Computed example of a mutant assay.
Amino acid sequence: MSAVTDKYHDPLMCLLRTPDLAQGFTPEQWNLALGQAEQAQLMGVLASQYQSSLSRLPEIVQQRLAWANSLVEHQQRSVKMALLQLFDALGMYSPMLLKGAAYQVAGTPNVAGRMMADIDILIPKQHLQKAEQSLWLHGWDNRGKTPYDEKYYRAWMHELPPFVHQKTGIVLDLHHHWLPSSCRWQFDINEVFKKASFCAGSPFLIPDIKDLCIHSAIHLLTSGEGDKGWRDLRDLYLLSELTQREHLLARAEQFGLFKPVTKVLLLAEQLFGQEPASPTVSWSLKAMLPAHSSYQSWQTSGAKMRFYCQAHLLRMPLPLLLPHLMRKAAARYAKA
């Protein structure tokens, strides 16, 4: 590793922070950086970052980034078409886009090259039953879950069981809140609808930029998906640049989320701010490391397990969580 890369402890974070340093990368550094990017779901971000200077990179890097760029473009077209289909099914229920779909429609700075696993839509809870039936009629299906899984989603979570389009395979998460019903943090989700607005060319509501920031932070803490942490912290950092910090924190305070949002903002600034820290400076950042062989250590594994358990404790109180985890473990054992 070069001294420059050693300064940042890994090549992918070096590229994300200082794109111009790519010219000095060795083949070994590129191989490691691209492997980390794949695991962190940031390959498309790298492809977008170097799209205008792709010819100056090594040939194999050009090929892998060009493929990633094609994949992102295909996905964004697919999402655009899926949103048209979804509005036919949900348009009468005041649908609001969340996360990746909201970023794409709003054209936020973090959208370039960003991949998404599914489409997230929020509607008022009172419309859930009719919305679900409408989705079934439009080719989206979420049936076939076990009775326990149905109870898990419908009694405790903030969303219905995931829908899959029968022809395209696109996954939809239909939310009625940002947070599970069993979560210790709660607030009136109608406040989000009050500040939402339409973007030009889209019939969907988009949350206010402060609310996009807050949801990004809270989702990271409650999902337990630390392996995607770099992508999500980058989202939050770039989104937070679009609003004044005091206004963002005041909005978080309104929702009773000041402390968790402040915590995640600090992590985002440690990775992507003006004075970046090492990605391993704290256990929280260790939990965000990509699931790559270059980060295999007992400290990293312990941080990821701690983050996963903490997220589940936020989602469900212990009397609910322990039976849930035991049931899921027994189901996995039965399938083994």
Rank of each mutant, 00 (worst) to 15 (best):
V4N: 15
K7Y: 13
K7F: 10
L12E: 06
L16R: 03
T18A: 12
P19M: 05
A22H: 10
Q29L: 12
N31I: 04
Q36Y: 07
A40C: 08
Q41S: 15
L42H: 03
G44D: 08
V45S: 07
S48K: 06
S53L: 03
L54W: 06
L65K: 03
S70C: 12
E73V: 05
Q76P: 10
Q85R: 12
M96D: 10
L97D: 08
L98K: 01
G100R: 00
A102T: 08
G107L: 01
Q129M: 09
W136L: 12
W136N: 07
N142R: 03
N142P: 09
G144R: 00
Y148K: 08
E150D: 11
Y153K: 01
A155K: 08
A155P: 07
H158L: 01
Q166H: 13
L172P: 04
D173R: 04
L174H: 02
H176P: 09
A196S: 10
S197Y: 14
G201Y: 06
P203R: 02
P207K: 02
I209A: 07
I214N: 04
I218L: 13
E225Y: 11
G226P: 02
D227N: 14
Y237P: 07
L239G: 05
L242N: 11
Q244V: 04
L248N: 00
L249H: 01
A250P: 10
E253V: 00
L257M: 09
F258D: 12
L266Y: 13
E275D: 15
A277T: 07
L285C: 05
M288D: 03
L289S: 00
S297E: 10
W298D: 15
T300Y: 03
S301G: 13
G302W: 12
A303Y: 08
Y308T: 13
L314K: 10
L318Y: 05
L322M: 10
P323Y: 06
A330P: 11
